[in-house]
């Protein structure tokens, strides 16, 4: 198996997919870069480095640099998908779902159901998200919570290079719109990646740690923080199950419930604010379906209910970190 980081895994998967399937196209702002400049096309290769080399291989008809027009980007992806293509559309920052909300929420999410199951809309929207780079309130948000709430959208949060490849391939083989959330701070994370057409089915969680005393369900970047805490507590003889759901819609309820039935304790770690979040959703699931297994009240470790602040001291306080997770785990153990 090759070792690469998440950025490279996504780039390689896009190369392979475009090679294999001529209906796959990529569109977004500066996904090639340099259009209409002296430096020329491909002066950039995507501002995140995930689309490097694609325009050289597949040309500007399939790798489409767009003007700054998010509604038209997602709307065009929707139309291309209805007409039989498999567009991959990039939102440079997930925050820009605020600009193209209608196309995501009222359009692509609805077609298959609303058109009596006859339409397919296999759009993959790549949303680059997450805090930690002092990018402030409009360039840092973890909006998977909003899109998880919309029936008709699948929502994916890869946290390892292997899963980035496997989940992207799965998205490119399905017939439904997939919201593919890529955390900026995880792009450099390295790992082994299976060769070939590696696919990871949606709705199957990854057990990142097995410990048996406390269940930690962590989302996106929070998985690595939860792993850190689990490793630390393991030295004290406290065993944590760390569950990475990988997809928040569909959600692997079984993996979570099975674990909580064993441990009796749940901590959910979520980078987005506390209300109406994936964290509260998972907590409600456990309260409803594993109530009698619980030995302590479920804990949610989330960002505060504020926009994301700029100053480093404030942003550090905003993003949930290992100390808050550890404290929550201990509260579940000390309860009663």
């Amino acid at each position: 198996m090759a070792v690469m980081n998440i950025r490279e895994a996504i780039n390689q998967t896009l190369h392979d997919a475009m090679e294999r399937d001529p209906s796959v196209i990529l569109l977004g702002e500066d996904v090639a870069g340099g259009a209409g400049t002296a430096g020329g096309q491909e002066a950039i290769g995507g501002i995140w480095g995930t689309s490097t080399g694609l325009i050289g291989k597949f040309g500007p008809e399939r790798v489409i640099d767009t003007p700054i027009s998010e509604s038209a980007i997602i709307g065009a992806a929707a139309g291309a998908a209805l007409a039989g293509m498999r567009p991959v559309a990039e939102l440079m920052f997930a925050d820009f779902i605020g600009v193209c909300g209608d196309q995501l929420i009222n359009q692509i999410a609805k077609f298959r159901y609303m058109f009596g199951g006859k339409a397919r809309c296999p759009v993959v929207v790549r949303l680059i998200y997450g805090a930690g780079m002092n990018s402030a309130a409009q360039h840092s948000q973890a909006f998977y919570n909003l899109l998880t709430a919309i029936p008709g959208l699948k929502v994916v949060l890869p946290t390892t290079p292997a899963d980035a490849k496997g989940l992207m391939n799965e998205a490119l083989h399905g017939d439904d719109p997939v919201m593919f959330f890529e955390h900026k701070a995880l792009y450099g994370k390295k790992g082994e990646v299976p060769e070939g057409l590696h696919r990871v089915p949606f709705g199957h969680a990854r057990m990142a740690r097995e410990g048996g005393d406390v269940t930690i369900v962590a989302l996106g970047r929070m998985v690595s923080f939860a792993e850190k805490v689990a490793d630390k507590l393991a030295e004290e003889g406290i065993g944590c199950d760390v569950i990475d759901p990988r997809t928040t819609s569909p959600l692997d309820e079984e993996a979570i419930l099975d674990s909580v039935e064993q441990t009796g304790r749940l901590v959910v770690v979520d980078e987005s604010p506390p209300r109406c979040s994936v964290a509260t959703d998972i907590t409600a699931l456990v309260a409803q379906k594993a109530f009698s297994s619980l030995d302590a009240p479920p804990e949610c470790v989330t960002a505060p209910h504020t926009p994301i602040p700029f100053a480093p001291e404030l942003e550090r306080a905003y993003v949930p970190g290992p100390p808050a997770i550890e404290a929550a785990v201990r509260r579940t153990l000390d309860w009663g």
């Binding site: 700054i68 925050d95 820009f96 402030a136 309130a137 409009q138 602040p309 700029f310 100053a311 404030l314």
Partner: peptide, 23 residues
Amino acid sequence: GRGGSMHIADTSIGMLGANGIVG
């Protein structure tokens, strides 16, 4: 310190805000 470079505003002098969202 909450806004930073991209979000400077002073409504008291009619500067209604820099903006991180293009358009």
